[in-house]
Structures are given as C-alpha cells and as structure tokens.
Write a protein that binds this DNA or RNA. Sequence first.
DNA 1: CGGTAGAATATTTTT
DNA 2: TATTCTACCG
Length: 739
Amino acid sequence: MKLNVQNSLNPQQLAAVKSTEGPIMIIAGPGSGKTRVITERIAHLINKEVKAENILALTFTNKAAREMKTRIQQIINNNHTSPVWMGTFHSIFARILRKEANLIGYDNNFTIYDNEDSVKIVRRIVTDLKLDKDNYNPKYIYSKISFLKNQLINPDKYDKDPTLKEQDQKNKRSQFINIYKKYCNACRESNSMDFDDLLLKTHELFQTKKDILAFYQESFKYILIDEYQDTNKVQDAIIKQIGEKYKNICIVGDDSQSIYSFRGANINNMLNFKTFYKDVKEFKLEQNYRSTQNIVNAANSLIAYNKYKIDKTIFSKNEEGEKIQLFEYSNGRNEGNNISAMISQSIQYGNKKSDHAILYRTNSQSKVIEDGLRKRGINYKIFGGLSFYQRKEIKDVMAFFKLLVNQYDDESLLRIINYPTRGIGTTTILKIRQQAEQKQITIWETISKPDILNTIELTKNTKKNISFFTIMMNEIFQLINNNIFEIAKTLIDKTGIIRRLQDDPTEENINRLENIGELLNSIKLFSMRNSNNTLIDFINEISLDETKDNEEIHDNTDYVSLMTVHQSKGLEFPYVYIVGLENGLFPSQRNMRERQLIEEERRLFYVAMTRAIKKVILSYAISRFQFGTINTTSKSLFLEEINHFFIQKVKKKYEQVETKPTIKPPKLGHRKLTRIKASNDDNYIKGLKIGQDISHNIFGKGEIKSIDNTNGNQKITVLFIEHGTKILLTKFAKIKILT
DNA sequence: CGGTAGAATATTTTT
DNA sequence: TATTCTACCG
C-alpha cells in the first residue's frame, strides 16, 4: 500500500503527518486542511505498521466522526480492516463502560439519560423537597450539576468546599448540595448514566482500577483528538490517564475557534498542553485555503483584539477578493427582505441557492429572514431544532425499550406508567415513589411485588389498574430474547400507544404515528444490518447519536442555509451573510460585561466570518422587534474592530424592497422528518376510491372524501357518520372497505 | 384523574 | 411573539 497523496500536503502539514511519536500539538487555523492532516496521519501510522486497533481517534460530534471514518476508508486499504477506535468521546467511553461498568458498581446493561430525563429528575427532587421553583430552577440546577461533574467536582468534594457553600448561602440556594446528592443517587439507583457520567465514570474506572487502565493504555498506543479547544476538564483528565504510558498524544484544534465554554469547554486545556508535557512538538497550520485574502485579513484584524490566544498568523494565497459589505437596515424585517433580494439577484447571476448561508446569533432571528425568503419563493433550510429521537412519541416508545433491558430505570418507568393513560394518576405515583424511597427499592419492585404494593394505601380500582400495568409489562419482559423488530411490534401493540394516537387523529397525532412508523423502520434496518444486534445495542446507538432530522436529507434540492453561528462551525459557503450585528444580540447581552465572555463572542464572530469562501455580507438593524416589543439598538462593537480597510463603506437601506406576491411557502425540510422510503406496498391500500364507504374499528361507518398518496404514506380523509371528518393513515388505521 | 386556560419566561448546543 | 409551565375546574 503506497500513498502518494502526501505530495500534495504543504511542508507544515506534511511534518505534522509524519511526526508520530510523543506529545504533539497541531494548531489548525480555519480552512487549513485540518481533517486531511488527521486522516493522513492515521493512514501514515498504519503504513508504519501500527495496528489500527491501537489507534484511538476522538471527535466531539458524530458528524465529525462519520466524516473521518469515510475519509479514512478512502485512503486505507480495505484488507486492513481491524478497525481504528474512532468515535465521539461519549460513544467510545460508553463502549468501554458496557464492558467494565460492573467494576464500579453498575450493571453492564445500564441505560443512558439524556438532558430532558436529567432535568425531569431534578424537577422531581426540587418538588419533593418543596423548594421554590424560581430559586431552584430545574434547568439551571441541572446545568450547574453538569458543569460541576465536568469539573470533576462530585457531591462530596462540593460539600467540603466552604467557598462554594458560602456562595449558595448568599444566593439562597443552600439546598443545592442536597439536590446534587439526590440526583446522583437517583441515577445510580436506576442503573443509569447521564451524558456526563459516561465521562466521569470512565475517569473513575481508570482511577480506581489500575489493571483496567493499564489494559487500555496498552490498547491505545496512539491517541488523536480533534477540536481540543472544546474539551472540558474530565475529557482532558481521561486523555492524560490513557496517554500516560506512551504519551503519543496528538491534539488538534484552534484556540480562536473555541465557542463552547458555556458547556464546560476550557480553552486552557489547549493553552496548557505545552506546560503539562515536556517536549511537545508544535505545528501551526497557518495557510487558509478556503477564503479570499480580504476575508482572512478582516478576520485577523478582529481576533487581534483577544488577549488569550496562541500566537499565529493566518494567511491566504487566494485572490484578494471583494471587500466585506456592511449594511444598516431600519429593522429586522427590512434586513430579511433586503438579504432575500440580494440572494435572489445572486441566483439570477447563476449562483446556486446552496452557495448562500445566513448566520445569526440566536435561533429566534430566523423568523424575519424566513419571511423574506418565502416572499420571493427562495427555498431555504433551517438547521437545528429537535432531533428525531428527542420527539415525545419516540421517547415514549424508547422508554419501554429501556425498561425492558434495565428494570431499575425509574425515569423511564415514570414516563410510561401512565402513558397511554391507564388510571394511575399523579397522587398514586407520588405514593408509590414515597414508598420506593422509604424502602430503598426501585419503582418497578414496588409495584410488581404484591406484598409491597399492598402496604400502600390505594383504592381497589387503582390497585387493579396497577396490576394490569405490571401484567402487561411482564408479558413484554418475556420478549427480551426475540428479534428486536418483533419486540418492537408486539410492544407497540400491547401498550396501546398507537391506538391512543389513532383514536384522536389530529394532524399532530398523525405526524406522531408516522414517526413511530419511522422508528419501526429504523429498527428493522438496524436488525438487518447485523443479526447479532441486540436491543441494548440499538438503544445505545440512538442514545448517543442525536443526528438532526434534516441533516440526513440526501436529496439534491437546492436551498439557502439558515443556522446559528455555532452550528456553522466546520462548514463553508461561498457567500456568507451575518445578521443582527447589534450590541446585546451579537455580542449577546449576557456576555457583554466580562472580558473573557466578550472574547468568546469575538471568537464566535471570527468563526462566522471564516466560513466564507468568496464574500462576507454583514448587517445590523437600528431597531429590532423582540419579545413582542420594538427596541432601539446600537451597532455591534465588533464592527469598529474590523480594520475598515477591508470593509466597503456602510450602505444604509431603510426603504422596503418591493416584493412579489406571496407564493405558497416552500418550507423545505423545515422541522420535517427524513423518511427512509419504505416499500410503498406496505403503506398503501390499493383500490381505494373517493366516495367509497368504509368502516373503522372505532369511528364506525364513513365515506372517503379524499386520498393523499404523497410523502410515502397514504392518508385518507373520511367523513364518519357519527364522528365527523377524520384524517387517517391507512398504514395504521384498521378499516374495512364496504362498497 | 385529566384536560385546558391563563401566566410566566425568553442565548449559544452536543453528547 | 412563541413556547412552556402551573393552577384550577369538571
């Protein structure tokens, strides 16, 4: 296997690729070919006879991991397929913990709580302790817990720190430590780990079980970490544990693109790397291959205002390019309209819609932009929003799955004990929970053992309802060794989830039914991929991959991209519009007071500008409609910081641009689901006609008024004699043709 | 126990 | 404005 690609690397890139031993820091500016260097480096290691399974490559997002995997597959000979350990921190550590969790007091079939689960647990604790919901806002409390965990401050450590407790006293949150303890206990007793635990428990495992640590140190002789500026304290600590023996640690990142401190990322992990390890070899990738000189120079002049950074000079040898444009608008609506007009013109000159991206600081800014684009009939896609697996109906079904593999999982049990409603209400649940807590047992134990259940004061009817539930669940538990698709089908039928939604076929519920159908689809695909795949594998995979619905649309439709600056990281577009450059918005109000926070906002702006290949268009509005009121604004302080030599004179545009009459909104992919197109045969009932009489198991007789075969799922509108008009999905609805 | 109406509240986001 | 949460009534 010979690789010639190395010839096309520049000297710094090549040096970084070839330097394999010892601690290495690669500082990679925007557009400097970072991913290429990482993948080439892995290929180079394998060429040097390093076994692939001795290489650990960590990323932050699944997307980055996937991209790297495919690129490595392209350059490495496929015969060599003992795989590199490549994935996100969380997925790799979850894999380790699946094997070793029993050593630190968990069962290996632990389940994983996402943020929503965690906040719910905190909310329950706060309510139970009868604390004030304003002072002890569950979301805030959880984020504080998460932050502490990432700082390696466990409840005991917190308890022993007088300054922390003093602060709580001052803020009237003296009960915080109590909540923290209870939260950790709740997770522990449910045999569940939250996202932070996946890191924290790995750290604990390596700290307490030296033989296990030795094993993984030997396994991971070569370690690579991408986006090191985004690591938090636990992640940094684990890398130090694993890398201690061979010290072949290669970190890649750009301190100037660190924009996640609000979730615990610590830029100092990168800045201190050189002092922690002796003789760190440092490589700087300073040539930007992406943007014009004007863009690079403008971005440099901005970031120069930051004090905390690593010295480097990013340069471009591309053409000088156009100067940056700056627009002043009368208000947000005007901003949206004018940008749409500009994009419309650009398209007429022959550019694609996908050559344009509009970046904003907050999601709420997308609305006025959308309106503008829609008026001109320009296709757009909004990135972000809820992931498929965060949807309520999906989480409901998943809760049953989780419970099936881990009956200790109280959170999942509480989620579905009365969904679909089966007469077990809040007071009953409270009594059950109190009993469980008193007896120090799980909720499932409390309700499934008659002698324990009988100690709780409940009406005969309630007890009957509970026993119906436990009988049903026991039947489901019997399925554990079946094929996962079979389990899923039976489960959905037995629990009545689908029936409940069918009974009330609002548009929302139809959507939910489609989503559940989609979940079944993906389970089917998952089970076909490898017959050994178990339910726990499936849960694991989806708990850790929050791929957004619309990220997976692979069709060729052309659209303008709308997203927050955070989401744009790692992407590039020829034309980049950065909107809402106003003090209090960008930089955001909350981050305007402290120097460190302002620096992060500045990095954020730096990231935004460096996404552009050809041209950057900046804008602000002198008044903005927010939270229902109109506010006068001032232009962002960052605009004064960019060297004016690179900016075209500001253009003021106050008049409304003329707009064409409104065309039907082409809401492309907006919060819409990806569908794996199922074989249509299953989803259609052939021979249905408008005017036909049918009968439905619940609504009785009715007449078909219309049939909709789009979206891969047949929907029919039926006028029922007794229940009026309903929209039904023929895939799910139990109907009989009468005429 | 369950649904709904009116109040409260409002970055950035991945795992 | 838009969403999420709480309190109350049937």
